[in-house]
């Protein structure tokens, strides 16, 4: 079915020193700010054609944190980082399948 899998649909997102996403399948995933910031896939962090990483992780402060964020359509999260960067969209699919995280199962 075309139905969007519950494991990619966010029920709740919050920040408390790490980014927490609770998905509709009940998984509670926790993401490190620094890892999220350094895995940004926007065109100024990853070369659009070659896929080469343009962002030097060493330039990202260890205490990087989100100042705000917004949902993008049905599929992603745009984070406004404390270093002024805000062009990256993090698709929930990628956050669930690829981005390293710690999972606390709830429900």
């Amino acid at each position: 079915m075309a139905r969007l899998a519950a494991k990619y649909r966010p029920k709740e997102v919050f920040y408390d020193g790490a980014a927490h996403i609770i998905f509709y399948d009940g998984a509670h995933c926790i993401y490190s700010y620094w890892e999220l910031r350094t895995s940004c896939t926007c065109a100024s962090c990853i070369h659009e054609i070659t896929g080469e990483k343009l962002l030097d992780d060493a330039t990202i402060a260890e205490d990087i944190k989100p100042l705000g964020s917004e949902y993008v359509g049905n599929y992603g999260l745009r984070i406004n980082w404390s270093d002024g960067h805000s062009t990256g969209i993090y698709p929930f699919r990628g956050l669930r399948d690829k981005q390293p995280h710690e999972t606390l199962q709830v429900d």
Binding site: E12, K65, L67, G68, S69, E70, L77, N80
Partner: peptide
């Protein structure tokens, strides 16, 4: 996790919905 002095809030608010 209250506000730390002289800084932006330590924790960002939940994501906004702009639809």
């Amino acid at each position: 996790h209250g506000q730390s002095p002289g800084q932006a809030p330590a924790h960002a608010p939940a994501p906004a919905k702009k639809n």
